[in-house]
Design a binder for these strands. Structure first.
Length: 515
DNA sequence: TTAGGGTTAG
């Protein structure tokens, strides 16, 4: 590591420790420390500062703290860098009492706390539920009048992100007492309103900016457009998007995508397409995501022509198909029952890097089940299982397949595996499995599944009780009695359920002798 | 340490 003949000094060691530490080579750092001791080369403040920040970076806060202490024991006074590094590390880890102790020591020594650490401590107090303290902490710096726009913004953000809009507004007002807020403070305040679903306030704030001689920038508009779009208010989002466009602040199709997908979500496909076309007219090139939104929208309504129009347009502009687009197409072909086309896309998916995912694989199994094509379904299912990707849907669909073609032994195997793997979590899976047991008159299994279902909080439906009724009748309960049970359940869920459970239990304990 | 887009079913 060190060439023979050259005696390194502390500065050389510092440089090397810094270098190795930055590359995560902590073993070499330890060796260097040993070497230093051997050569009686005394570590200085900078050595310790490097070690402290190094271990903070590697999340060894205890070790970092240890070096801070060791430094003091070696009669070296920690400087402002030592303090700031450790204090910042404490604050981001919400180590409140440790942080407060350091703050106290820094005050005593007249060391200034930097703005970055200041806002991080505000965050620490907020996230530790000490709202009062967080406000006083902010206020202490505010009254000193040395805060920068960045620092006010960071404090507004700290409160806003955690849902404390009132405090965020108070910081914003405090900032206005001193000077005009910059675009920075406006932007985090818009963000705070957005997080807290105060859309009108956010709009009013952006509208008021020019009165203060401040103009919304790309970030202001992006936040607002994003927020309105995800709040299902695409019309309003589109209004600000237009303003953004007029100010020449739209540089990519991201904000358009947000609004387009918001229209899609509300079922306003025409508006979505209109906006997409407007985006193209403004010279913004749609990317694969923008195309993906529309392709999926058409897939959802089963419109092959519409989906393919955009697939072709996308290909013509030289964009390659990706997994998401393929999934949308498979979903579409499954919906309209085009097995051949689905197979083509699935084949394409297999040649992509990521390969087919569970979703598209399940669609294929579903398509094969409709046609009772066991072999290809089993192949896909086996592959999913091998890669540990098979989920509840995969199993449930295979169960349907076996039931459909009359392979009950296989169907029971699937049902058993679903239980063992903990894949019985939703209503339809429960009903499938229950239906299977009922069909075969397996009373005990049916009752066990039903009890599990109730215990896990899944509410039974008509179909559930139909299966249970079948199973009861096979055990000799009269049709009339079963009808009564059904009526009781419909009239009053709670007490009806009680009677069902009691009936199943009493039939269960009768000495019929289970098969 | 100011914001950010698409797919999830029986």
């Amino acid at each position: 590591m060190l060439r023979v003949g050259i005696v390194p000094n502390t500065v050389t060691f510092n440089t090397m420790i810094h270098m190795f530490g930055n590359h995560g080579r902590l073993e070499e750092v330890a060796l260097l420390m040993q070497k230093m001791e051997q050569l009686r080369c005394v570590p200085d403040t900078r050595t310790y500062n490097i070690l402290i920040s190094l271990h903070v970076k590697h999340d060894n806060i205890i070790v970092a703290k240890g070096y801070f202490k060791k430094m003091q024991e070696a009669s070296l006074e920690p400087d402002v860098v030592s303090y700031r590094t450790l204090l910042y590390a404490f604050s981001t880890r919400r180590m409140v009492s440790e942080a407060e102790e350091l703050v106290k020591e820094m005050n005593e020594r007249g060391y200034e706390i930097d703005e970055f650490t200041q806002s991080s401590i505000t965050r620490m107090y907020i996230e530790s539920g000490m709202l009062e303290k967080s406000w006083l902490w902010f206020y202490r710096f505010h009254i000193r009048g040395k805060m920068s726009p960045e620092c006010y913004a960071a404090n507004i953000d700290a409160f806003g992100e955690r849902g404390h809009v009132l405090e965020a507004e108070k910081v914003f007002e405090s900032c206005r007492e001193r000077r005009n807020p910059t675009v920075l403070e406006f932007n985090v305040m818009i963000k705070a309103y957005g997080i807290n679903k105060m859309h009108d306030e956010a709009c009013r704030l952006i509208d008021s900016m020019d009165e203060h001689g401040v103009y919304p920038d790309e970030c202001s508009y992006n936040s607002l457009v994003q927020m309105l779009a995800s709040a299902d208010i695409p019309q309003k989002a589109a209004f600000y998007l237009t303003k953004m466009q007029e100010s020449g602040l739209v540089s990519d199709c991201v904000p358009y995508c947000a609004v387009i997908s918001s229209f899609v979500k509300l079922g306003q496909l025409e508006m979505a397409v209109r906006l997409f076309e407007e985006m193209v007219r403004f010279g913004l090139k749609p990317d694969v995501v923008a195309y993906g939104v529309l392709i999926n929208a058409y897939a959802d309504v089963g419109n092959i022509e519409g989906a393919l129009r955009y697939v072709n347009e996308m290909k013509e502009t030289g964009l390659a198909m990706n997994g998401v687009i393929c999934n949308s197409l498979i979903k579409l072909y499954k919906k309209v029952g085009c097995l051949k086309n689905a197979e083509e896309v699935y084949y394409m998916l297999q040649r992509l890097d990521a390969g087919p995912d569970v979703y598209s694989s399940n669609c294929m199994i579903d398509l094969y089940t409709e046609r009772s094509m066991l072999k290809p379904a089993e192949e896909i299912f086996e592959k999913l299982r091998r890669n540990r990707n098979a989920n509840e849907f995969s199993y449930a669909m295979m169960l349907c397949m076996y039931k459909k073609i009359g392979s009950f032994d296989e169907a029971f195997k699937i049902a058993k595996q679903m239980r063992e793997l903990g894949l019985l979590t939703d209503l339809l899976s429960y009903n499938h499995v229950l239906g299977l047991y009922a069909l075969d008159g397996r009373f005990n299994e049916a009752v066990t599944i039903f009890n599990e279902m109730i215990k896990s909080g899944v509410e039974p439906t008509d179909l559930t009780f139909k299966s249970l009724g079948v199973v009861l009748m096979k055990r000799g309960v009269s049709k009339k009695a079963v009808k009564n049970l059904e009526i009781m359940w419909r009239n009053d869920y709670e007490s009806g359920l009680e009677v069902w459970l009691a009936t199943l239990d009493s039939v269960n304990s009768m000495v019929y002798g289970d098969e």
